[in-house]
Amino acid sequence: MSTDETTAGHIQELRRGTVVLACLVRLRQPDYGYALLESLNALGILVDANTLYPLLRRLEKQGLLESEWNTEEARPRKFYRTSPTGDSLAAALTADWHRIDDALARLTGDER
């Protein structure tokens, strides 16, 4: 495995949990897959469509998201919204993210 691949792999690992948090927070406003993807990428949260769509399904299966089909327009779209369970998970994840950030900041000290 080349250094680039190793780096990419670790960056992906680091981002994995943050994508879940971003989705849970962002979907407090209901939205559909592609719009969510666009808005996350616009915010600088880089996520691949092949990761995001299956992730939304999984979060729904775990009861963290709720979904509803919007058939008012020509193309039916599945709108996801964060469930109350998802909301409390988002709060827990946010708290943990801050804790990790503080800890890593202390660890890296003046390097930042």
């Binding site: 559909y32 897959g33 592609y34 469509a49 769509y53 399904r57 089909w69 193309r75 039916p76 779209r77 599945k78």
Partner: peptide, 13 residues
């Protein structure tokens, strides 16, 4: 339905 939505949206883009 989900795939149609995704393929449609990505094609449009």
């Amino acid at each position: 339905r989900e795939l149609r939505e995704r393929i449609g949206d990505e094609s449009d883009a």
